[in-house]
Design a protein around this nucleic acid. Structure first.
Lengths: 153, 153
DNA sequence: GTTAATGCAAACGGTTTGCAGGGGT
DNA sequence: ACCCCTGCAAACCGTTTGCATTAAC
């Protein structure tokens, strides 16, 4: 895995980005950034916080919230407001949609180019000006389906 | 307006539905139902509560929440979890999507049959079993666009 | 008369805020 | 040295819950 190498490169970019934006690259911010890169795709503030405390035992949850908000402004993450869910933070900045498992709550990225390039519904102009669309799939993920199958046997 | 007549009919249906479900048709439930029918399409619990207090000054907010949850179970309303929004209650039970104005937060119903009957993205089966889809449009509504135009002049 | 529903108050969970003290530039 | 950022604590807001009282059946 040259995951680490990739991360180093990203850290350089973070430093640069902070410099440009006149934002201090504090120890906490750096570590939160590393956690974001290390963790699977849709962490909650809570999850980052828990992991972070292993390295920085005195860090506060609100620092995580503040930092994630800062990163959101910098464009490093995207705040995800899924329905009926706590706020998650998306490190995948490509155009995509989400699948949320009703059973284990896992969130997976869905790519659907045909939808992305699809023209808007007719008469939408009368309603107003569309700036963005948000699409979610809900269901049961492969993994939970398999567990369910086992349970029945 | 024969809105009132229509409402009477609906109240009969509510009585019947409560009877069938073994649920008591209390004064509060009836009045909450009437407010739902009277109010524009996507009320919050708070809005219903405020209006309700004009008739029942001692009613409690949690009663409204409980009643709306009950109505949701009965299929009379649908709980709407829009992203980044408080929970709203939808009295439109037809298949539709939502447009949310970024400016005034108004929610409007969008019909898009071409999407509804569209086949799912390829390879979605690997992710899991889709049970529902949820589509939102965000932008600026006609009304706010016009206000914006006036402001500039 | 039973049982479920209400009102009240207090808890809840995720998130935000005010403030004083500490750390990066 | 400056000011931003942090940690702490407390507030916040929408929503839920436990409990004793009340009202529908």
């Amino acid at each position: 895995m040259d995951n680490a190498k990739f991360t180093k490169q990203q850290i350089e970019e973070l430093k640069k980005l902070c410099g440009e934006s006149g934002i201090k690259l504090t120890h906490q911010r750096l570590e939160i950034f590393k956690e974001l890169m290390a963790v699977s795709n849709h962490p909650s503030a809570e999850l980052i916080y828990k992991r972070l405390r292993r390295k920085l035992p005195t860090v506060a949850l609100d620092t995580v919230y503040r930092t994630l908000a800062t990163f959101d402004e910098l464009g490093l993450v995207k705040k995800l407001h899924l329905m009926n869910e706590r706020t998650l933070f998306d490190t995948n900045l490509k155009v995509h949609h989400h699948f949320i498992c009703n059973h284990c709550r896992k969130v997976e990225d869905i790519y659907w180019q045909r939808f992305d390039s699809c023209k808007l519904p007719e008469g939408i102009g009368e309603v107003g000006m569309i700036e963005s669309r948000h699409l979610e799939f809900h269901g049961v993920c492969r993994n939970c389906l398999n567990i369910g199958r086992k349970d029945k046997q």
